[in-house]
Amino acid sequence: MARVDAGQQDTEDGGLRPAIEVSDLWAGYNGQAALEGVTLAIEEGCLAGLVGPNGSGKSTLLRVILGLHRPWRGEVRLFGQKVDRARRLLGYMPQVELVDWAFPVSVFDVVMMGRYGRLGLLRSPIRRDREAVWRCLEQVGMTDLARRQIGELSAGQQRRVLFARTMAQEPRILLLDEPFTGLDATAQHDLLNLFNDVRAAGKTLLVATHDLSCVATAFDHAACLNRKIIAFGEPRTIFTEQVLNATFQTHLLLVNVEGKTYVSYQ
């Protein structure tokens, strides 16, 4: 897989435009900057991590890419197209804390919501949509629980339902906000397997997370974000003490034991 550096936007080699292209993006809330000149290019078929501490702008960057938050300056292109024209290309999985698990909807209902953006106003789901929902439920192994109310599920099952909903959008690019939070090792592993399946199908994933070890072992690329891009590249290469300290500052503790560096995130 070709190495892509932050800032590199050229398509002079005649290749395809990157799946996600962020150039000189400035954004924030109430005059307070959350992103300061972020430039990033992520290739198609890449599993990329977006790492940084809380408040580093990870969610803001995802929201700008989704077109939910208007940037002060700079722009986002998806396969060379502006976001408002390319919304259909995107699938989004929100932070689990933002989901109302007590809401009276079934697993099937939630996954069907992934189809609503495609359906448009006033149109009801047709057979094709129901088939797509079943396909996505099967992909995440949740067909048996399709009729359950979502609050009755375990943490790992809830995460797989959200992922199925993201897949029901039939996206080429998936944006996932903290998908690993609160999962045990098995559930995390299962979710990662799903990500790998999706990547193998040629889709692009951008995952905001502060799980460094997961990114280091399983991701193609990582972007270290703390309002600015501190580093971008293969996790192995860029996860140096210097970069991680600059990214996480006081939030991170690096412990060197017998030549290996252990990371603890606070």
């Binding site: 989704l66 995107l90 929100p94 209902d109 992934g114 953006g117």
Partner: peptide, 14 residues
């Protein structure tokens, strides 16, 4: 239903 359940995702879906 979608807006009541998950406004952020509904907005992202257009």
């Amino acid at each position: 239903l979608f807006t009541a359940y998950d406004p952020a995702m509904a907005a992202a879906a257009g």
